[in-house]
Simulated assay, not measured.
Amino acid sequence: MKVPSSFSRLKDFRFPREVIAYAVWAYHRFAMSTADVEDLLAVRGVVVSPETVRLWVNRFGRHFADCVRTDRPKPNNMWHMDECVITIGGVKYWLWRAIDADGDVLDILVQPRRNAKAAKRFFRKLVKQFGKPRVVVTDKLRSYIQPIRSLVPDADHRAHKGLNNRIENSHRPTRRREKIMCRFKSPQQAQRFLSAHDQINTIFRPRRYKLSNQSYRHARSDAFALWADYTAEMAA
């Protein structure tokens, strides 16, 4: 089927960039497998294999995530940090995640350790990217103490499990995707997927409980407009 396109076609790709962008959006926006996205496209007359969808997601997911990072406003200066365990090939790894006070994910990092060295590596990456926070909220893991004191000595470090419920909730989408994908296949695959997944969901999951219906619809329209702009910027 020939699909009409309002954008120039990507070199060496059979389908127009709108189809590819739609597949990437559907995969990251909803709790879908590549086979689910295949069926979603098939209903619209686009016949592809789950492997093709997987290649699209791997190749262009990072492009959209980078666009979101570039355009996002400066994050709130109150950060929440936490780590959760993920099992890959029978081996435990730690997924380090940081969000701001608005609940937007700043970054994630998959590491094999849960010690001060791992905490410092992740925290240094955040400070380099976003600057120094005013407040850092963590659980009572002592590995956070030395990195925070050395990198942001003036920050107010609040180590209390009850204060960190916001980031505990942000782990839930990861758990859902981990189940759908029958666990992650490698640390590199988990890092690649989650880095894109969290950023893409930032613009398509506004805090609906804080918004009126009209405000939510405006936010959704803005998100689709941004996605169209990012689609136009795709490169083969």
Rank of each mutant, 00 (worst) to 15 (best):
I200V: 05
V152Q: 09
S6Y: 12
R175D: 06
I203N: 03
A232V: 02
F122M: 06
L141M: 13
V57H: 07
I180M: 14
L126H: 02
Y93A: 07
R97F: 07
R220K: 12
G45M: 04
R113V: 07
D71E: 15
P112W: 07
L126Y: 08
F122R: 10
A98T: 01
R207P: 01
A23L: 00
R44H: 15
I200Q: 00
L109W: 07
A23P: 00
R207E: 00
R205D: 05
R121P: 00
V135C: 00
V68T: 04
I148L: 12
Q189M: 14
K74F: 00
T231H: 00
E178I: 04
R29Y: 13
F7I: 08
V24W: 05
N115P: 10
L55V: 04
R9W: 06
D198Y: 15
G131N: 08
P147D: 07
Q129N: 09
V137S: 01
N58C: 12
K2M: 11
T52S: 15
D107I: 01
V53Y: 04
D229I: 06
A31H: 13
L226K: 15
V3A: 03
T202W: 05
V24K: 01
R207N: 00
I203D: 03
S221W: 10
Y144P: 01
W56D: 04
